[in-house]
Each structure stands twice: as C-alpha cells, then as structure tokens.
C-alpha cells in the first residue's frame, strides 16, 4: 500500500460550525489516506464525525459548517478549496456518494430511468438513447430483475433493498474512482443488508473503485474493509488494518467498542458496554476526549490531547503509546 500514491488524502482536517454560542468543532485534526481500490471503514458512535468527514470530502457540508483548516487531496490535487462548479464536476464523476436511507434519496417524482439518464448524460459524452442503454445495463448490474421494464418505474414502485440497489447504480454509473458510502445498509432489513454489502463489495472490486464505508456495524466492516478508522468526538482514535483493529485494538476506546459486539459462541448475562456517553461537541473535556470514560486513564490524559501515535500494528491517539510517557 505504501508504494501506490493515495487516491484520497485527508490532512489535518478541521470542520467548524459557527453558532451563536461560539464555534463548535465538529472535526479536528482528522488525517487519513485511501489508496486506489481500497475500502476504508469508518466506525464510531453517532455524532463522532463519520458522516461529517464524508460530507466534507464530497464538498457538501451543510452550511454554516465549513472547513476551517487542513486539506483534502484527490488524485494529488486539492479539492477542499474548489469553487462549487468545479467541485460539482467531480461529484458523481470522480467521487460518488451513497446515503443512508434509500427511501428518501431518490426523487419520488421521476422514474429511476430519468434519474440515471440525467446523471449519465451530465458526466459522460453519451446521447440520451445511449445513456438509457447504459442505465439499463447498470440496473442489471446491480441486480434489478427485468431492468428494461423496470427502468420506467418510479422509486415508490421498488422495495427498500431494490431502491438501495438503484442508488448504488446512480452512484456508480459515471464510474467514479471513490465512493463515499454513508451507512448504506442502516435503513435496510437485516436480511437485505448482507446482499447490498456484497453487491457494493463486488462492484467496487470489479471497477477498482475505492470506498470510504461509514457505518456503525462492525460486522460489515470486518467483512468488507481493508482498513478501519475508529472515530471519537470528531477525531480519529485509531486507524489500522481491519484485522488488527477488530482483533487487537490498541486504543482503549476501540477495544471497548469491539468488546461490545456480543459474542455468538457463548451466552452472556449482560452485554458489554462502555460506561458514559460521548461528550457533546460543546463540552469536550480537556486532554484526551475519551478520558472520562477510559479505564486506563492517567494524569497526562487529562491535560494534553494525544495525536495519532505508532502502536506497532495500528496508529492510535492514546498516550499509552507515547514512548516518553511512563505508564501511570
């Protein structure tokens, strides 16, 4: 991985929301790379900044949110400071996006064919007839039966799982190099989730598409991702190869998160949980944001914020891995 140039580089990204009661820092010092064809899983509790990171990458932060510091580079070029129109040309064409709820991401008033054709003709030099042919191919590709007939159906005529397949076709139809998938299966039935994830995985592999997969489903991550980033209170707590993070998490938060996955092979009286709740953005404690909940907390954690440090198998933002810190 180190010998290929990264497709996406996020460097020290900071996203702020100016509010009447002062500025909220939604993301701080977030840095990661995604290599071409790689799947990066992003996990964390709700409000940890997972979706916000995705929104920042596709340039669709909800105002008044704004990138206050840092850079986002796509294929070596900065994209965080592009004008709206330049960024628009990248969206869909180079960076696709899939959202959480397929029931609301499709415009109810247009047929799926219309929405596919308009996306294809926006980005590819095809005439409407060719675009329609391409649209039917894509619907077949994502596993819509009788695609040639279903192309003129409206979104409400499809089930949830089928709609998410249509959304995937829409996100991929201009063959972007990167997909930002924001909880693509959360709103689906459990039985459909596996199918949709398998489909995404297959398509990404076939087309060599890199993916940033935001989810809080550790099962999905373990199955799909090459690497995983654990986020906490707007920062990356730990990032590393998926096997290492799932099996031997180094950051106490990731360890707690993994421990809270109920084991299948034995009965447990009480499910493991991390005590307390993630702090609100307006009340992030001094030092490490996780320190009030951390079982291994010591003096330095309450004073200084750790950056990502080398923890042999992964990189973790935890003072435990600071070579100069004596364990407390």
């Amino acid at each position: 991985m180190s010998n290929t140039a990264p497709l996406l580089q996020v460097k020290n990204l900071r996203v702020e929301f100016p509010t009447r009661r002062g500025t909220l820092v939604a993301l701080d010092d977030v840095s990661f790379d995604i290599a071409p064809g790689e799947v990066l899983g992003v996990v964390g509790e709700s409000g940890a900044g997972k979706s916000m990171t995705g929104a920042a990458i596709i340039g669709l932060l909800e105002p008044p949110g704004r990138i206050a510091r840092g850079e986002i580079l796509f294929a070596g070029k900065r994209i965080d400071n592009l004008r709206y129109e330049q960024m628009r040309r990248l969206r869909g064409k180079e960076i696709g996006a899939i959202f959480q709820d397929p029931l609301t991401t499709l415009n109810p008033l247009y047929t799926v064919g219309h929405q596919l054709v308009e996306t294809i003709t926006t980005h590819l030099p095809l005439n409407p007839a060719e675009a329609r042919k391409r649209a039917i191919e894509w619907l077949e590709h994502v596993g819509i039966p009788a695609a040639a007939q279903r192309i003129d159906s409206y979104p409400h005529e499809f089930s949830g799982g089928m709609r998410q397949r249509v959304v995937i076709a829409l996100a991929l139809c201009a063959e972007p190099k990167l997909i930002v998938a924001d909880e693509p299966t959360t709103a689906l039935d459990v039985s459909i989730q596996a199918q949709v994830i398998a489909l995404l995985k297959t398509l990404a592999r076939e087309k060599g598409t890199a993916m940033m997969l935001v989810t809080h489903d550790m099962g999905v991550i373990a199955e799909t991702a090459d690497r995983v980033a654990v986020m906490y209170a707007g920062r990356i707590a730990e990032i590393g190869p998926v096997r290492e993070v799932v099996k031997h998490a180094n950051h106490p938060y990731s360890a707690g998160l993994m421990a809270s996955i109920p084991p299948l092979d034995r009965r447990v009286e009480r499910l493991a949980q991390i005590d307390g709740a993630m702090p609100r953005l307006s009340a992030i404690p001094q030092g490490c944001a996780y320190n009030p909940r951390c079982p291994q907390v010591f003096g330095k954690c309450r004073e200084l914020r750790p950056d990502l440090l080398d923890a042999v198998t992964t990189r973790a933002a935890c003072w435990l891995y600071d070579t100069e810190t004596a364990r407390g």
Binding site: I58, L60, R88, R89, L90, R91, G92, K93, G96, A97, F99, Q100, D101, T104, T105, L106, N107, P108, E118, T119, T122, H123, V167, L170, A171, A174
Partner: peptide, 11 residues
C-alpha cells in the same frame, strides 16, 4: 435527502 443526493451526483 434526494436534493442532497442530486447534488452528490454532480447535477
């Protein structure tokens, strides 16, 4: 969401 998605599709 569908407006957000329409933007994300680069329309």
């Amino acid at each position: 969401d569908y407006i957000k998605f329409a933007r994300a599709r680069g329309l």
